[in-house]
Design a protein around this nucleic acid. Structure first.
Lengths: 219, 219, 219, 219
DNA sequence: AATGAATGAGTCTTCATTCAT
DNA sequence: GATGAATGAAGACTCATTCAT
């Protein structure tokens, strides 16, 4: 058996990670990718382990070696999608830009991500509602992570104290609802058209409707 | 089949309603009332027909005579709760009052209704998410019914055209999310405290945050 | 429909027990009877619920309505067999006869019962060993019940204090082993021939081998 | 296949054993030792091949190269333990001593062996009951091996013909039961205290209770 | 017309065994 | 020769629905 050309061989000390770990991680990703699709297409309740292992082309035992069961698999799907989207959006936000610009960038990136991966988005926004209390808890954690980021907008408000305490929660809930609707009704393709709407909805309470509308139009 | 002796027959004008129809309607209500409680406490997926017929103290056949199955029963539960809440709220809204007052009255009535019947509210706001696509469709229809009522607020806005097209959808989604959270986390008792928040959130975009805050504080 | 002749009708106050209870009790017995046969023929580990419900001609749900699972069913089989044998043997023992005669009667009755129902005996003596720790605990309880009865023989011993403390345990274990052997090797038919042997083995330590042999021969 | 250079070849008479055989024999012992522990701790039914290969740190293929499956492995465990105990006991028995002394020595050695290796003892006395018919057959063969040794005690009986034919079987069954009980209830540590009891139980029928008690007390 | 017992298909999960690397 | 991943058959258990009484 021919060995690799020397410059492609792993450098000494860069020893290969334990193959078992690698395989499991690889397989895990592979099953998650299939599962996301299956969950998105069939819905969480209608999905069976059969569907998952068939789609992932793995044996039952392999599935249960990695996941505790359907629920666990779904939770990991959610975490995977949430993390992926989060990173995608984070890296699109210019860290030193003023807050309104950051919001715009984040919204645009989010819409692009959803349009690019509507199935994953469906898991994160639609099916997560049916994935049981734990999935819902994960979903809430995601909301909670966004609240303080949005709250920074209060600095721009002429009267921050007049803003309702739960404004950010409500805003996130409202935006999520709009996105969900579009995903459920299969209008994922047109979802990017929501961009100016969302900018106005998110910025409006802080900057005033006028300013928000101007920024939305500019974007 | 022998008819009843004449002196036992219902007097004319007092005519017996079609017994079958009456019985079914009566039983339907009874089962719905029990089911709402069961669905609220166990969650839609964990509820079985056994649970329902046991709680309603009816026979399986009676259940299937009235409902097509679990899903159908849940849909009718949702419709029942939605209608009841809707009527309760409608009757609390003074028809000739100015729109902002109507909104306040509606919100107050809604919060009261939720506090009074947290189980029913849970069906309408939480479990409906897990009741399958048809339940969700019903939920969306409810949203769609509220949209035009809210939209009337645009008359009060200094620049109605600057408001985003989907503002009302987002507002309803946001408010619904807030309510859901409180119901899920078992804070149903404190839900009426949300009143000023909700007034601000709903009226803010139309009347401006100042005016909204003033009205909220007044209520 | 003709009613029963009056003298056969249940007296008032002697109201029929709840039919549900009756049905379950009846079904339970029916399933137990089938299960005993299945367990005896296939052995506990090789028996599946399928085998049981097929043999009992009941549905899965009926089985699980009555039993918690295979283990529970087996335990109840054991209890049933043990009780039945116990009653059979008890009723064969003359309560006022001297102890050695009682032992003889009990042994004879036990052998007759085993010969009459070798399958049940197999459950009680053979399969119980493989039915898990709880089954074994039940088996031990049966042993413990017999110990004090046997211990009464010490009154007849010339030197009761010289007898080893665990003599009775050992005797019961030894007799059980002999019976098990015959059952396992399919010599259940010839099992009654063990009678004089067992009498000698049980009575020997208390009455002396001579006397024991004489009584055994007399029986 | 090239042979080794002459100076590396094993000297004549010192011939290298077939390497394959050696490896297999070695591995076999290693797996057996691990398995005995696993079977003892988990019980036969709850033990899986996974447990065995994990404990033995061998590959599945290696396991199946040596054993036909779980049952076969268990049988060989039993044989191994039985042989080991047998040899241990045999070597403790003075070949020229009178029979009662030999019995005492054997009993003492057996109890010591059990106390020293309670896990192995558990396989031989407890788990063997749940290892299927073949395991039980092996267990019976062990009993049958002991019977004639015990039978020699009849020479010491004043009336050998009065002793029941199956006395030895019953005695062995009784002693085995006592030992099993102590092992199952985790009293393996106190098992050596059974010594005088067992001496009396075994010798009593042949030498009379008096003499047996005296010998037991002397030991 | 009401009851609730019976059905049996479908799901999750486990494990002994094989086989590709 | 060794490894351990993949297979897939089989079992326990649940539950929506039907049907006999």
């Amino acid at each position: 058996m021919a060995s690799l050309p020397e410059h492609l061989m792993p450098a000494a000390g860069e020893r290969a990670p334990l193959p078992r770990e690698v395989r499991l991680a690889h397989q895990r990703r592979s099953i998650l990718d299939s599962s996301i699709e299956v969950f998105a297409k069939r819905g969480y309740p209608a999905t069976t382990i059969d569907h998952i292992v068939a789609a992932a082309r793995v044996a039952y035992a392999s599935f249960y070696e990695i996941f505790d069961g359907k629920q666990d698999c779904f939770l990991q799907c959610y975490e995977q999608v949430a993390t992926e989207f989060w990173e995608r959006i984070s890296s699109a936000v210019p860290p030193d830009a003023p807050w309104p610009e950051q919001v715009c960038a984040a919204l645009r990136a989010a819409l692009e991500a959803i349009a690019a991966e509507p199935l994953a988005a469906r898991v994160a926004l639609v099916e997560v509602q049916t994935g049981g209390p734990e999935a819902l808890a994960g979903y809430e954690r995601t909301h909670d992570t966004i609240v303080p980021l949005l709250r920074r907008g209060r600095e721009f408000s002429p009267a921050p104290d007049e803003l309702p305490e739960t404004l950010e929660e409500a805003t996130i809930g409202g935006v999520a609802w709009l996105l969900r609707q579009r995903l459920v009704s299969g209008e994922a393709g047109e979802i990017e058209a929501l961009y100016p709407e969302l900018v106005e909805i998110v910025l409006g309470p802080y900057l005033g409707e006028d300013e928000a509308a101007r920024i939305a139009a500019a974007g």
